[in-house]
């Protein structure tokens, strides 16, 4: 006769995930495709908690566990509302009503990332811009670190922050992915890089006498004939120009 204790069996794997997900002790995740390619998106009741481009499930799970100190389980789909807000955020390049789980981040990182989320798609800003905008003009380096550790890339667009010299710079998933996303968003990356190569950080219009970040939507409306180039804020001010109120290339 088969022994009674042999009737002890293994519970299905889904039992653990079901319990931990419902108790809020684990995050669910799904695969999505976005401008940077295939990505995994983790979420919980607070919102989207983690995103990685091009990872495999095991690596993603390890990374989530390391970053959020919570396990992540592959689930069938995102909750409907969150999923809709996520699709919209991808399509528009803006957070909109998409909820983000900020709880794993320090106050400083939250400030950096919330500010970064204000940069419009198709535009870029240097680290020093973010640092100044959050009231820490000397913290450009710390801003770089906070952005490099952005747990929710793509939707919080750390790819829109570039080196202070105007070069596109690095990205957690490689500079090529950063370039691709920016181009999909409508930025002419090569011309941005060409300006940076020539040491140009700001551009202005000689009709309005306003200077901008080169990728500011106002700067891009200026015709070639009226465009002026500056290597620094000081040079622009000396020429009698004032900073743009939209892209705020310098303190007003």
């Amino acid at each position: 006769m088969k022994e009674l204790r042999d009737l002890r069996s293994t519970a299905p794997e889904s039992l653990t995930s079901q319990v931990l997900l419902e108790a809020g002790l684990a995050d669910g995740y799904v695969a999505r495709s976005g401008p940077g390619g295939e990505m995994f998106v983790a979420f919980n009741e607070r919102g989207v908690s983690a995103i990685q481009i091009g990872a495999d499930p095991a690596a993603f799970e390890r990374w989530v566990e390391g970053t959020l100190s919570r396990p992540a389980f592959l689930v069938r789909s995102m909750p409907e509302r969150l999923g809709r807000a996520f699709d919209k955020a991808l399509a528009t390049g803006r957070l909109g009503s998409l909820a983000i789980d900020w709880s794993s981040m320090s106050e400083f990182q939250q400030k950096v990332l919330r500010k970064t989320a204000e940069i419009a798609p198709g535009q870029v800003r240097p680290y020093s811009w973010v640092a100044r905008e959050i009231g820490n003009p000397k913290a450009a380096r710390a801003v770089g670190t906070a952005l490099a550790r952005n747990p929710v890339p793509v939707v919080v667009p750390c790819h829109r922050v570039v080196r202070n010299d105007g070069h596109i710079g690095n990205y957690a998933f490689g500079p090529d992915v950063k370039r691709t996303i920016l181009e999909i968003e409508g930025l002419d990356v090569s011309s941005v890089e060409r300006l940076a190569d020539r040491g140009i950080r700001l551009t202005g219009s000689d009709t309005t006498r306003i200077f901008c970040n080169p990728s500011c939507s106002d700067a891009r409306r200026t015709t070639d004939r009226h465009r002026v180039e500056f290597r620094s804020e000081q040079q622009a001010r000396d020429a009698g120009y004032r900073p743009c109120r939209h892209c705020r290339p310098a303190a007003a």
């Binding site: 009737l7 002890r8 069996s9 293994t10 519970a11 299905p12 039992l15 653990t16 319990v19 931990l20």
Partner: peptide, 10 residues
């Protein structure tokens, strides 16, 4: 959960 899941389920 890890400790009890199999016993409880069985």
């Amino acid at each position: 959960v890890a400790e009890f899941r199999d016993g409880l389920f069985s």
